Simulated assay, not measured.
Amino acid sequence: MTRHDGRIGALAAVDPAAADLADRMVDLAIRGLPPGYVNGEFVFTRRGRQEPGGGWTAVAEGRSVRYSAIVALGVAPLPADAQRAALAGDTVHDLVGRLVKGLPSVTNLGDAALIAWAAAESGHGDLPVALDRLAELERAVRPGDPVYTVEAAWALAGLAAAHTAGGGTPDVERRLSEARDRLLGGLGDDRLYRHVIGPASWYRAHVGCFADQVYPLQALARLHAAVGDTTALGAAERVAEGICAAQGPEGQWWWHYDARTGGVVEGYPVYSVHQLSMGPMALLDLADAGGTAYLKEIALGLHWMTSRPEVDDQLIIEELDLTWRKAARDDPKKIVRGARAVASAINQGARLGVLDRIYPPMTVDRECRPYELGWLLYAWLFELKGQAR
Rank of each mutant, 00 (worst) to 15 (best):
Ala287Gly: 08
Asp288Asn: 12
Ala293Asp: 15
Arg366Asp: 02
Ser344Leu: 02
Thr261Pro: 05
Glu383Ala: 10
Val354Cys: 05
Glu318Asp: 15
Lys385Trp: 03
Lys334Asn: 12
Glu383Val: 06
Asp312Tyr: 00
Arg340Met: 08
Ala293Tyr: 09
Ser272Lys: 03
Tyr359Glu: 04
Gly374Pro: 01
Phe382Trp: 15
Gly263Val: 03
Thr363Trp: 07
Asp330Phe: 10
Met305Glu: 03
Leu302Val: 03
Pro361Met: 10
Gly290Leu: 12
Leu315Ala: 09
Gln275Ile: 12
Gly353Gln: 13
Trp253Thr: 07
Gly291Ile: 13
Leu381Thr: 13
Lys326Ser: 15
Trp255Asn: 15
Thr306Arg: 10
Gln275Thr: 11
Thr292Val: 14
Leu295Cys: 01
Trp375Met: 11
Ala345Glu: 11
Ala327Tyr: 00
Asp313His: 10
Arg337Ser: 09
Ala327Met: 07
Trp380Gln: 08
Ala345His: 09
Trp304Ser: 12
Glu383Lys: 12
Asp258Ile: 08
Ala343Met: 13
Ala328Ser: 14
Glu372Tyr: 10
Ala293Gln: 06
Asp331Ile: 07
Arg337Cys: 00
Met281Thr: 09
Arg329Ile: 05
Pro370Ser: 08
Leu381Val: 10
Val342Arg: 15
Leu377Trp: 13
Val273Met: 06
Ala299Glu: 02
Leu302Arg: 06
Lys296Asp: 14
Tyr359Val: 04
Gly338Arg: 12
Ala327Glu: 10
Lys326Arg: 10
Leu373Cys: 03
Met362Val: 12
Ala282Phe: 07
Ile335Leu: 10
Gly353Glu: 15
Gly279Leu: 03
Glu318Met: 05
Leu284Met: 13
Ile358Trp: 07
Ala341Leu: 04
Phe382Ser: 15
Arg329Gln: 00
Gly353Ile: 08
Arg369Gly: 02
Arg337Lys: 14
Gly349Glu: 12
His256Asn: 13
Pro269Phe: 01
Gly301Arg: 03
Gln314Ile: 00
Pro360Gln: 13
Pro360Asp: 13
